[in-house]
Design a protein around this nucleic acid. Structure first.
Lengths: 295, 295
DNA sequence: TAAAAATACTCCATAGGTATTTTAT
DNA sequence: ATAAAATACCTATGGAGTATTTTTA
């Protein structure tokens, strides 16, 4: 059997006339007759009753036509849906992100723009740590992830998205809370709440490298497991903390965030994905993602 | 596009390997590669991600595969259902019949056998007059009809089914009601309830020809429009009536049916259908219909 | 280096074309 | 007699085969 034969069959069924059908499908009448005969022979069924003036569908032919129309329509849908998926207009896109980075800026903006532009793509969003995202990207649990300071990896493509810095979180009633900015060297006499290296080694090292370069040996009074814990401890007055500037989009009650001068800490937010990624919708997402230079 | 390409695509998708797939479908690997490339070119979509050890379906390829599996399955169903319809095992069979002839005998027996043997065929049964059936057979409202004394018609096939005769319907309290049989000549002095010729001309003529041949000129006191009316009038004592012997299967209260000797009336019940009939189920029905000789 | 897919080319099966015959009213 | 489908036969497109090259981990 052959889709050509099915198309021919539908044409003859609709025209009820081999000659007219052959004109419609632009082949000669004998060629059409033969294809229909081959189809009938393969099915072992007479599809048309031959009349002196044209033909009519047989009872079995009517049954076959109903199915064929359905099949041809389904095939059309299959093609257009496959093409839509290939264009990235339909499907699923699984993204990871660092929660704090998604409170404002390029991440929510791009996600909103993508939802708008590609309503046929289901976005699956997961708030994950940087390490979890890298694992997820490798094993395919997510297609791409927004994370800070991605490690170099020949398998991964890295699209810089934004460069964030750190702010000093101080209690509202602290002596520093009224200041527009604080020089990093002023932290020498301050008790500092830091975080455990294990939770974010690249950032931890980057931060301490920045402090070392400024010649500041800080007095770490606690190592928290995340910034939320750090901020909670700052409110108790236990010390001050250097936190991601994105915390300003959700400032905790009782805490003031102050700019820190002369501390060069790079928090490079990037969209990371497999260089050999195969999800067309990801290309669409990348196209909507503003280049870092535009910030 | 081509069903062959779709079969090839499914094979490669399942094997995830052009070489193995080509063995499975018994063609050379390059031929398979080319057909897949042609399919991809026609769709404008990459269906497989080529890896160093085999291939994997792309995202769009997975979408296409899902549809293709469905389409191939539908096509299989289309073929088998079409063949079943052609064999007369599935479909619709529309039959007409004379009500009185269907109370017993070959008609209900054959219908029961057919229902049993071909549960996939929906039987549509219509109680119609002989004339209505002939019209219905001509214009396709019914595929075949059980009727009496069908007129000769080169377009129609006639399958004799049974030969019925007539009985004399007399009131229970009549002088004739105790008799095993009545000679037709005894009707000379009886008031007779007949029926209007328009309602069944062939039978009417046959009946009166039979009476004429027996030398009986009957005293017709009423011309009814059907046998039910005739029987109703017999119960009133208005007269006697010659009715189809099938009435014995549903004898009205207050009436006795008596055999009539020396009256040669042929009520030839036949199944009538278009000689060029196209309903496969009708052939099955005919095969189940006992030949008249077996009665 | 090796496994697998792609390319180059050759061949032939078969779809399609033209001329003609058969069929059924 | 006529319209339409079927048959006969020829042509050529393109599917499939063999040999070889390219690709990538």
């Amino acid at each position: 059997m052959d889709l050509r034969q099915i198309r021919y069959f539908v044409a003859v069924a609709e025209e009820e006339h081999f000659g007219r059908a052959s004109e419609r499908i632009r082949i000669a009448q004998p060629a059409l007759s033969r294809q229909i005969q081959l189809l009938e022979a393969e099915l072992g069924v007479t599809l048309f009753d031959r009349l002196p003036r044209g033909v009519k569908l047989s009872v079995a032919g009517r049954t076959f036509l109903a199915h064929c129309s359905q099949i041809m329509a389904d095939l059309g849908h299959a093609v257009s849906e496959t093409q839509a998926v290939a264009r990235g207009e339909v499907g699923v896109l699984k993204l990871g992100f660092i929660e704090v980075a998604a409170w404002n800026g390029v991440i929510p903006a791009t996600i909103m723009a993508f939802r708008d532009g590609y309503p046929g793509v289901r976005l699956v969003l997961n708030s994950l740590s940087g390490l979890e995202q890298l694992e997820g990207i490798h094993d395919g649990r997510i297609d791409a992830g927004f994370l800070y300071n991605p490690p170099p990896d020949p398998l991964l493509a890295i699209r810089p998205v934004a460069r964030h810095t750190v702010l000093l979180a101080v209690p509202k009633d602290s002596a520093l809370s009224g200041r527009a900015s604080v020089d990093v060297r002023e932290l020498v006499d301050q008790p500092v709440i830091s975080f455990h290296r294990r939770e974010s080694p690249v950032y931890h090292d980057e931060l301490h490298r920045g402090l070392f370069q400024a010649g500041v040996a800080v007095d770490v009074v606690h190592e928290a497991i995340n910034e939320a814990e750090m901020l909670a401890l700052v409110t108790t007055g236990m010390g001050v903390a250097l936190v991601n500037e994105c915390q300003k989009w959700r400032p905790p009650h009782g805490i003031i965030l102050v700019r820190v001068d002369n501390l060069d800490v790079g928090l490079d937010l990037a969209l990371v994905y497999r260089r050999d990624h195969t999800v067309p919708a990801l290309a669409r997402f990348l196209a909507l993602l503003p280049d870092q230079t535009s910030f």
